[in-house]
């Protein structure tokens, strides 16, 4: 069978959809002779060359407040670790702030694609959304208390923002299904959980005992988010399996 381009609502991406054309493609690819021998190793070599010349994606800013200058000067005498801590705080701040927007987007999907038997409820989602907001505020206040600028985009914050791009694309795409959205938010929560654990370890190792307790409270909330999201996604996948649904709800 050659292509039947009149087939509607049918996935066409696999080679099995066009056995004749597909076989011709395979044959043609076999006959083609690469213009250079070798393997993917050449790609790795170029990457290694660039990595060896790297300058990083950016740096931490100098302190901008008097309190910050004093603290930074004192810190410099001891070591550079405060900057590592501030970089990670910046990462968490960025992730929590985007997390609020991820939940805003999820709330839109769930409110339209309501399924009372499966959850989550709007209240559950709004509660988590507001907790993410409070975590953002907790980090913001912590950075300010340390005399640093919470509006800075730190290197780690920039990296997690790039990581989160795909999650935003799924959660803001009106075509995404409930299970696709819940999977995206699961990835966010998995990352968030480990992020808080790392922050607690850092705070402890740097002697910020006053912060450890508050961060542990946030981490417990994140563990709760993760457990809930896992439950919702599992229930959704089970229901989809039962109904034979793929990619779109009835």
């Amino acid at each position: 069978m050659a292509h039947d381009s009149k087939i509607a609502a049918m996935n066409r991406t696999g080679i099995g959809m066009s056995p004749v054309d597909g076989e011709q493609m395979v044959q043609s690819a076999r006959e083609g002779i690469p213009s250079m021998e070798g393997s993917a190793a050449g790609v790795q070599t170029v990457r290694e060359q660039y990595i060896s010349e790297r300058t990083g994606i950016g740096s931490m800013p100098p302190p901008t407040t008097l309190k910050g200058v004093a603290k930074a000067a004192a810190a410099l005498v001891r070591d550079q670790r405060p900057n590592v801590f501030l970089d990670r705080l910046g990462e968490r701040l960025a992730f929590e702030r985007t997390g609020v927007r991820l939940y805003d987007a999820l709330i839109c999907h769930i409110s339209v694609l309501t399924d009372k038997t499966l959850g989550p409820t709007m209240n559950e989602l709004r509660t988590i959304r507001d907790e993410e907001h409070r975590h953002f505020e907790l980090i913001r206040n912590t950075i300010e208390t340390m005399g640093a600028d919470p509006t800075v985009l730190t290197p780690a914050a920039d990296a997690v923002s790039v990581e989160a791009r795909g999650l935003l694309q799924i959660l803001t795409d009106p075509r995404s299904s409930r299970s696709q959205c819940l999977h995206a938010i699961l990835v966010a929560e998995l990352s968030d959980n480990d992020g808080w654990k790392m922050l607690i370890d850092l705070a402890r190792s740097l002697g910020h005992d006053d912060l450890v307790g508050r961060f542990e409270q946030a981490a417990r909330a994140e563990e709760n988010h993760l457990a809930k999201v896992r439950g919702w996604l599992t229930a959704q996948v089970n229901a989809d399996t039962k109904e034979g649904r793929v990619g779109v709800e009835a």
Binding site: H3, I15, M17, D21, Q24, S28, A29, G32, I33, S35
Partner: peptide, 24 residues
């Protein structure tokens, strides 16, 4: 080699994938 994806998901077997006049 960079994204681990198959171009034929886009081409749908309509177009051959093999060298032409080398880009270089």
């Amino acid at each position: 080699r960079v994204e681990g994806k198959d171009a034929n998901n886009i081409l749908q077997s309509y177009s051959d994938v093999r060298p032409g006049r080398p880009t270089s």
